[in-house]
Each structure stands twice: as C-alpha cells, then as structure tokens.
C-alpha cells in the first residue's frame, strides 16, 4: 500500500514533466500545424545549461532562470531561421527538417560539453525528504517537481483562458486565416508561442537534470513519450495533453513497478519478470495504439 502511494507519486512526477514538454508541442501543432521533433533538443539544452550554471554559480535559482531563458531564446532563434519556413509544408518535410535539427543539436552539445554525461546535484533546500503520509518519506525535490508542474498547468490555463494573448492563441488555433483577418499579428504570435513552448521544455530539462544523466541525445526518449501524450490527449488540446500526461506517467510508472509482480501470479517467476518488464516498457505505446484505434483523434480532440 505504501509502495503504491510512492509509485503513484512517481507517476505524477513523470506525468507533470511530460506535461511541461507536451504543452509546447501540442500548442505548436494546434496553431502552426507543425510536427517539431526538435522539441526534445530544447529539453536537452535546458538540462545542460541548468547543470552548468548551477555548478558555476552555486545557485539553483540562477540555473533555473538560465535554463528557461536559454531554451526559450534558442527556440525563438530556431523558429525564426528554420521552422517558420516549414509551416506551409507537409508533415513529411517537417519531420525531416526537424530530424536534421536533432542531429545538429546533439552534435553541438557534444562539442560544447563533451561526450561525458554531466550530473547535477539536487539543490540544498530540496535535498531532504518529506513525510506527507506517515511512513512514506518522499524526496522533496520530486514533490517540488509535482508542485511546479501543477502550478505551471494552472498558469497556462489562466493564460489561455483569461488573457488577451490566450484569446489570440485560441483564435489562431481554431482558424488561422480568420485570426489574421481580425488583425492578429500571427507571425509575432507564432514566435511567442514557440518561445513559450521551448521555455517550458527547458524547464522540464532543468527538472530532469538532477534525476537523470545529462547527456547528448537525452531529448529523444522523452520526445517520443511526449508525442504519445499529445496524440492520446488529442492534438492541439492543452487540457487533453494535461490529462494524457498524467495517464501516461501513471501507466508507465505503475506498469514498471507492479506488472512483474502481477504476472508472477500466473507465470513462473523468471518468465513473469521478463515479460513484465517487456510489457511495462511497451505499455504507453500499447495505450496509444489502443486509443488511436478506438478514437482516431485522441481522447480530447481540439475542435477542428
């Protein structure tokens, strides 16, 4: 039971990180109709900058600011130089060009930071653990991730639902031409949305840095998981992305934790462990395929 609580928290933590990634990706798809494989590169940059700045300055807050700012700036630059030209192109072109961006950024990171992975310490203030439920100590840093993720989700909700910018985003997402016709500067809006998404990816990278090894290519695995999230949630839907992110986080974490044990009830131990691990790592892909076959446009499709 205690293990279950801990694993659910782990699932939530993965879920909110996926949401930070998914928010930008799904917005960019919803508004600009762009498939951006290079989104994971912004995450990777965020992690590298965070690790470096924090190590150099000794301040986690500085690291945070630098990571988010660097990712947002690089994102803006990439949008201006390359991606903007891809909006009218078909998905195949977008996949290829942004695949090229991945290659570029992975190599760039290797040149700047070398091939050895970096490791980043958990900030002093969050290095302990918190016993929210008696008997279940949980690392404070992971709790902070969950809290930050939920806060960002709330802020995004307000931003999109309540502000002038949010109204423009919604207008552009539902009808680009109409948005332009009523005088929204879509070029500006696209750049802004892109920078916002990249900044959030950088934030996710910062959060991952103390948990995972910071290395070239780290963006790819989370990128694919993020795509799973936004496809399940319904492309272009922030709300869908949020719910799907939590779902995917929980399915992945709980699957890894409990599937082998569960299968031991029916199968010999060795087989159960093997099959369990195998099924658990396939879990989210099975989930996505099932969702797509059941509801081809995802769980919460954005209005067309």
């Amino acid at each position: 039971m205690l293990l279950l609580v801990e694993q659910v928290l782990n699932g939530l933590q993965l879920g909110v990180m996926l949401f930070l990634m998914a928010a930008g990706l799904t917005l960019v798809f919803g508004i600009m109709r762009l498939i951006n494989l290079a989104h994971g590169s912004m995450y990777m940059l965020g992690a590298f900058v965070a690790a470096t700045v924090t190590a150099a300055s000794g301040s986690f807050m500085l690291g945070l600011l630098a990571a988010v700012a660097a990712a947002a700036l690089v994102g803006l630059l990439v949008e201006l130089v390359v991606l903007r030209r891809l909006y009218p192109r078909d998905h195949l072109d977008q996949v290829l060009a942004t695949f090229g961006l991945i290659l570029f950024f992975n190599a760039l990171v290797q040149i700047v930071w070398g091939r050895q992975p970096l490791f980043m310490d958990v900030p002093e203030a969050l290095s302990g653990s918190v016993e929210m439920i008696p008997g279940v100590p949980y690392p404070a840093f992971r709790l902070a991730i969950i809290a930050t993720g939920l806060t960002v989700a709330g802020l995004l909700y307000l931003l999109i639902g309540r502000t002038r910018l949010g109204m423009q985003i919604r207008a552009a997402a539902s009808n680009r031409d109409m948005a332009e016709a009523v005088g929204i500067d879509t070029r500006m809006l696209y750049s802004l949305v892109f920078a916002l998404g990249a900044g959030l990816a950088g934030l996710a990278g910062l959060m991952a840095a103390p948990i995972l090894a910071v290395e070239s290519g780290m963006g790819e695995s989370i990128l694919i998981e993020t795509f799973v999230v936004i496809v399940i949630g319904g492309l272009g839907s922030i709300r869908g992305a949020f719910l799907a992110a939590l779902l995917v986080g929980l399915v992945d974490t709980l699957g890894r934790a409990f599937l082998p044990t569960l299968l031991r009830l029916f199968l010999p131990a060795a087989t159960a462990d093997g099959a369990g691990a195998s099924l658990a790592s396939m879990g989210i892909y099975i989930l996505m395929a099932a969702v797509l076959l059941w509801r081809p446009r995802g769980l919460f499709p954005a209005p067309a």
Binding site: V82, F99, G100, L101, L103, F104, A107, I111
Partner: peptide
C-alpha cells in the same frame, strides 16, 4: 559529422 549533416538535411528539405 552530424553538425554538418543536420543543416544539410534542412537545406535539402527547404
């Protein structure tokens, strides 16, 4: 080499 291959690819696509 990927540093050069990546942009080359983008150029081809564009």
């Amino acid at each position: 080499w990927q540093l050069y291959l990546g942009p080359l690819l983008i150029l081809v696509v564009l």
